[in-house]
Amino acid sequence: MKHAFSLSHISAQILKWTVLLFFLSAALFPLVWLLINSFRSNLELQITSFALPERWLIGNYERALQVASLPRLFFNSIVASFSAVIINVLISSLAGFVLSREVFKGRDTIYTIVTAGVLIPIIAFMVPYFSLITKLGIYDSLSALILVYASVNIPVSMFLITSFMRSIPKELEEAAIIDGCGFVQRFSKIVFPLSQSGLVTAGTFCFIYSWNDFIMAMLLTSGLSARTVQLGIKFFTSQFITDYTSMFAAIIITMIPSVGAYVFLHNRIISGLTAGAVKG
């Protein structure tokens, strides 16, 4: 009996690590490929894309850093992404609270329509977005990007936040009502704090979208004052020729903040939350 247990235990361990390592390599391979190729020349890349550099070229990184106004682009990306995340998560949690914890007619309809927005391929809406933004008079400004990023992510955030808020036990709120908490306090004291890991997840997705977006930034801005770092990467793709390896270097550089944001925002906050979470 004991023997059988340890045997199955060992095979379970092997199975477990096979799964973990498969996905680990699937996730790491592109990154390593990108990193190695960012030190190679374009000709080397054309000859074979799976080899170490003949000489490790730092020139690609130098070129990447020389891209016009990289600090400004970084600053714009940070402002646009973080503002969009804050707005998006705040308003989605307000609405999510009403849609998950209140009972009224039309609630399900609103929820269904709003979340059906996840289906929308945003490219289909480019013309109306362009006219909307120009009519609002915010073309070529960070406000345009913030507004679009915060809005485009509403369906996903509503989806995640509402379903998360629903899973909070009703008893907690009922207890709060007995203690004299009103509508606003039920949100601010009970539901909002308890759904923070859902909020962080939604915020992470919103951040990733905003940070990686290229097409909206290209469409809705024209000058450097409101352009984001993803456009900086594209300075290596010109009319006919793409300097891939320098672009890879630029991608590595621009990834650092988003990885950093993920590690800090997500890992730290979630770990902190679960450590002190109220058990349901």
Partner: peptide, 27 residues
């Protein structure tokens, strides 16, 4: 004359046609 950089050719074309379809000159 001020240059509005359009660093990606496909995106440039997309922007031109989107703006014109929205009834606004792209530049």
């Amino acid at each position: 004359v001020v240059v509005d950089p359009q660093p990606d050719y496909n995106a440039h074309e997309q922007k031109i046609r989107t703006a014109i379809a929205a009834g606004i000159a792209p530049a």
